[in-house]
Design a protein around this nucleic acid. Structure first.
Lengths: 195, 195
DNA sequence: ACACTACTATGACATTCGTCATGAAAGGAG
DNA sequence: CTCCTTTCATGACGAATGTCATAGTAGTGT
C-alpha cells in the first residue's frame, strides 16, 4: 500500500512495480505511474533522469528486495523449518494476494521478462539482480536447514521456477488451485533433501 | 518459420505469435506484424475485422495447438515412455530454441498472461483455451502411461508450471541451466507416479 | 539580501498506436 | 460482357507514447 509519508520518488517506484505486474512494463506509461503515485509530473524527470528504463529498473530492484525479505521472514513463522514449509510460505503470499485482490496482479519479474528480456534494454541487468537476490534468499534459508549449498541452489531454482509458473497458471484460470497443487506435489521431494 | 506457400492470414498469425513471445503483445503493433509477415497492410482489417484482439487470440490458439502437438509427438521419440521422459521432451524444445536462437523468444502464453491477464481483454478466453489444450495433451500422455487421470491432472499442472518458470529463469540468466536443473530435480518425483 | 540547489509546473516535440474510410484491383459466376 | 465477392492499397483520424525545454517555486546556507 502506498504510504503517504514516503516521498514521491518512492511512491513512483512502488506504483511502477504495481502497474508493471498487472499490465507489463511495455503497456505501463510514465504518466500513468506518476498520476497513480500522486506525484507531480515534473518530478519524474528530476528523480529519474535516465527516463523510463531507470524507473523500471528500480521497480525491479524493489521487487527483488521485497521477495527476498518475504523469504527471509519464513523462520519467524514456524518453529520447525523445512524446505517444503518454505515453499508453502512462498506460495502463501500469492494465495493471499489472489484471494484478497483477484488475479489482476502478477509478478513484476515475470512481466518484465516477458516484455523486455528479448530487447537490449537496460532493465535486463536489474532483472538479473532482482532474481539473484530472491534466489539468494531462498538458498540461504535452505542452507540454514542443513541443505548443502550446491543442492540448495538447485532446489531454489526449482522452487522459484515452479512458483512462477503456477502463478501464471492461476492467473490464466482465475483460480488458486495450481498453487495448492504444486505445493502438494513438490513438498515430498523438497523435504527429502534434509532427511 | 514462415512458409511462403501459406496465405497472408496464416503468416500474420504466425508472425504475431513470434513477436508476442519476444516483446509481449502490448508492445507488438499490428503494423509490425503485417510488415514482418510480408502481408499487405490492407489485408489485416479484412482478415481480422475484430482488430488486434482477434489477432492476439488466434496467435494464442495457434500456440496452444503447437504446444499440444509437440507433447503428443513424444511417444514417437521413445520406446519406453515415462513421465520424466515426457518432461524432458517438453524441456528439450526450449533447450533447442535457446541454444539455436538465443534467449530473445519466450512463451506466448506467459507473455500474454503478463500483459493481458489483468485486463478484460477478449484474449483472456483464448489464453485459457490455449493452456487447456496444452495441459490436456500432457494429461493424455500421462494417462497413456497408466497414470490415474486425477493424478495426471496434478502432474500436468506441475510440469507446465515448472517448465514455464524455468523458461523465465533461463531467459533472465541467458543460460539454459535452469532447464536442466528442473529436469534433474523433478524426474524422480514424476517417475514415482507410474511405479 | 544573495546565491545556490532541490523540486515542481507546464507546454510542446516527434512518433507511434489501433482503427476507420474510401477506393481500387482481382477473379470467378452468370 | 456484367455482376459480385474477395482481397489489397492508401490516407487520415484522435489518442497516447517517451522525452525534452523552459520557467517557476521552496528552502537552505552564507
Amino acid at each position: 500500500m502506498p504510504d503517504e509519508t514516503r516521498g514521491p520518488r518512492e511512491r513512483m517506484v512502488y506504483s511502477a512495480a504495481q502497474l508493471m505486474r498487472t499490465q507489463g512494463p511495455a503497456a505501463t506509461g510514465v504518466r500513468e505511474v506518476v498520476e497513480r503515485a500522486g506525484a507531480p509530473r515534473g518530478s519524474f524527470q528530476h528523480y529519474f533522469p535516465a527516463g523510463k528504463d531507470q524507473l523500471v529498473g528500480e521497480a525491479l530492484l524493489w521487487s527483488g528486495d521485497f521477495a527476498a525479505r518475504w523469504v527471509a521472514n519464513y523462520p519467524r513463522t514456524t518453529s520447525n523449518p523445512t524446505p517444503g514449509g518454505l515453499f508453502t510460505h512462498m506460495v502463501k503470499f500469492w494465495k493471499d494476494e489472489f484471494t484478497a485482490r483477484g488475479y489482476a496482479r502478477g509478478c513484476p519479474i515475470m512481466a518484465t521478462t516477458a516484455d523486455l528480456a528479448g530487447s537490449e534494454s537496460a532493465a535486463n541487468e536489474q532483472l538479473r539482480t532482482a532474481l539473484d537476490q530472491w534466489e539468494g534468499a531462498v538458498i540461504d534459508e535452505l542452507v540454514r536447514m542443513t541443505v548443502p549449498r550446491r543442492r540448495a541452489r538447485r532446489l531454489a531454482t526449482l522452487m522459484i521456477s515452479t512458483l512462477e509458473g503456477a502463478v501464471m497458471s492461476a492467473r490464466v484460470r482465475h483460480e488458486a488451485t495450481p498453487l495448492t497443487t504444486v505445493v502438494a506435489e513438490l513438498t515430498p521431494a523438497l523435504n527429502a533433501a534434509v532427511d
